[in-house]
Amino acid sequence: MNVGAGAGGRQWGRGVLREVLRRTAEGLGIVLPEPDSAPPSAARYVDERLGRRVTVYPPREEMTGSRPWAVYPRGGQCGDLWVRLESHGVIVAGGWSAEPTEAVRAAVAWMSGAGLRETRAQAPCIEFRPWALVHEQEPLGAVELAWHVKLDRYHTSDWGRFPRTNALLVAAYAQPALRRLTPITSHFNVWFSTRIEPSEKKQVGFGLWEGQVGYGLFPHDERQYGVRRRDGELVARTGTPEEAVALVVAALPGRP
Rank of each mutant, 00 (worst) to 15 (best):
M63R: 07
T64A: 08
G65P: 09
S66A: 11
R67H: 04
G75M: 04
Q77C: 01
D80E: 03
D80F: 00
V83E: 10
V83I: 14
S87Y: 01
V90K: 05
V90E: 00
I91A: 08
I91Q: 09
A93M: 09
W96E: 09
W96F: 13
S97H: 15
A98V: 13
P100D: 11
E102V: 05
R105T: 11
R105K: 11
W110P: 00
S112C: 00
G115T: 00
E118R: 14
T119L: 09
Q122C: 10
Q122P: 04
A123K: 13
C125M: 12
I126L: 12
W131V: 12
W131D: 03
W131I: 13
A132L: 13
V134T: 13
V134D: 11
H135T: 09
H135R: 15
P139C: 07
L140D: 05
G141L: 03
V143M: 02
E144S: 14
E144L: 04
L145T: 11
W147R: 15
Y154S: 08
D158P: 00
G160K: 08
G160E: 06
R161A: 14
F162Q: 07
T165I: 05
V170Y: 02
A172Y: 00
Y173L: 06
A174R: 14
P176H: 04
L181W: 04
I184K: 11
I184M: 06
I184F: 05
F188H: 14
V190T: 10
W191E: 00
W191N: 05
W191Y: 12
F192N: 03
F192G: 04
T194V: 05
K202L: 11
V204F: 01
G205A: 10
